Simulated scan of single mutants.
Amino acid sequence: MKPKVATSNNAPVSDEKTKKAHENWIEGIDPSLEVMSAIPLVLSTPVKLLAENRITDKKHLFVRNIQDLDEGMTMEPLPLEGWVIELSGLIMPYRVLIQAKDLLDMEQVEYEMILQCSGNGRNNFGGIKGTPWDQGGVGNVRFTGVPLKAILARYNVQVDPQVKYITGEGQDAAMGLEKPDFEHSIPAADVLDRGILALKLNGEPLPGIHGGPVRLVTPGLFGTMQIKWLTRLRFETAESANFYHATEYRVPNTLLKPGEKFKFSLENSRPTWDIRLMSYIFEPLPGAHLKAGPVSIRGVAYNDGKAPIESVLVSIDKGKGWTPAELQIPDSPFSWYEWKTEQTLKRGTHEIWARATDALGRSQPLDGRIFWNPNGYEWTGVFKSGVTVE
């Protein structure tokens, strides 16, 4: 089921084109998701939908395709029968073919985790080309699948100690002759520690639009590293020189001034691997009109799972004063932490801020533009919600 959407670039679509796109919507996706791009398909989740449930429903989950797979443009699962995943590179035996249907017979594990586009929040940097993400490229979901390390053991695969990266490829094809095919390299230590070949999303067979029937999932990493429609894993000593890995999905190793020119290379930049520390305000949402007096403020915070989040501070006076919020510790370090507090607001306009800090001492900068980069990746600035009190 291929969406008959009305634009062929990554520019925001007009109201007329959005209306036309919704007339040919993919059945099962909430029509209130915002069309960011038609080809490849990119849909953004309104923050108010993220606030509805702890686990983001598949119908509300954002969609970020770098390349489309025609048969994957559906909320239905794709068949496992006939789907093959190849392992190759510095392994013994040097090439292994795995029938995806055989994964169903293996023990599976479940991760509650953040799925987030590395460009989420790009608009906050200002004036950067690319998909104009606000804050709708994130969700908290449950992926279930077979650990890669268990698959290697099942098929008696020995990994060469020299292997530093595992490069994933999907069934999706390049979007035109001038475009390269998509792939990403991930640190082998991370994938072997917690990577899974995911078969389910939120307890149900993985929908085609979200990478089914098999998706490489490694909790704690940005969504671009969670390879959709997985067909091949290469075990290698060096990062891929592919455009999307060596140039596109990277941030400079040093701070840049806004607008500064930068030519990316494997040596002067790093991939967008680990999710950055972030917080959201779910209540009140930006633009809300409130009554003067006690106001409930709640939201979520998350990071890469490498250290627990220790605090979320809330300010109602643009950072002049801060109040600790009540923080709920989740079972999974890779999911979001729910928090809440109550503040008294007087009449007028207010900007509520939320700022998270974790056990490694990492904290959200008051102005996230300090990490400006020409690709607009890894926004981690303090979340701000402007409200009117009457």
Rank of each mutant, 00 (worst) to 15 (best):
residue 225 M to I: 09
residue 236 E to D: 04
residue 227 I to K: 10
residue 217 V to H: 05
residue 235 F to T: 05
residue 246 A to S: 15
residue 229 W to Q: 11
residue 236 E to R: 02
residue 237 T to K: 04
residue 209 I to G: 10
residue 231 T to E: 08
residue 235 F to E: 07
residue 212 G to F: 01
residue 259 G to M: 12
residue 202 N to D: 15
residue 238 A to F: 02
residue 225 M to W: 08
residue 216 L to H: 05
residue 216 L to W: 11
residue 243 F to M: 02
residue 202 N to T: 15
residue 260 E to L: 02
residue 259 G to C: 07
residue 254 T to L: 07
residue 236 E to I: 01
residue 234 R to V: 05
residue 202 N to G: 13
residue 238 A to R: 07
residue 244 Y to T: 10
residue 217 V to K: 03
residue 214 V to F: 09
residue 204 E to M: 07
residue 242 N to A: 03
residue 247 T to A: 00
residue 216 L to A: 09
residue 246 A to F: 00
residue 263 K to L: 13
residue 224 T to G: 04
residue 253 N to G: 06
residue 221 L to G: 05
residue 242 N to P: 05
residue 203 G to E: 06
residue 257 K to E: 15
residue 206 L to K: 06
residue 257 K to A: 13
residue 226 Q to H: 14
residue 229 W to D: 10
residue 238 A to T: 14
residue 250 R to E: 15
residue 204 E to Y: 07
residue 255 L to V: 08
residue 246 A to G: 13
residue 226 Q to T: 11
residue 263 K to Q: 12
residue 208 G to M: 14
residue 219 P to R: 00
residue 262 F to H: 14
residue 246 A to T: 08
residue 237 T to F: 00
residue 245 H to T: 13
residue 249 Y to I: 03
residue 254 T to Y: 09
residue 219 P to M: 00
residue 226 Q to R: 04
residue 244 Y to Q: 08
residue 207 P to I: 09
residue 213 P to H: 04
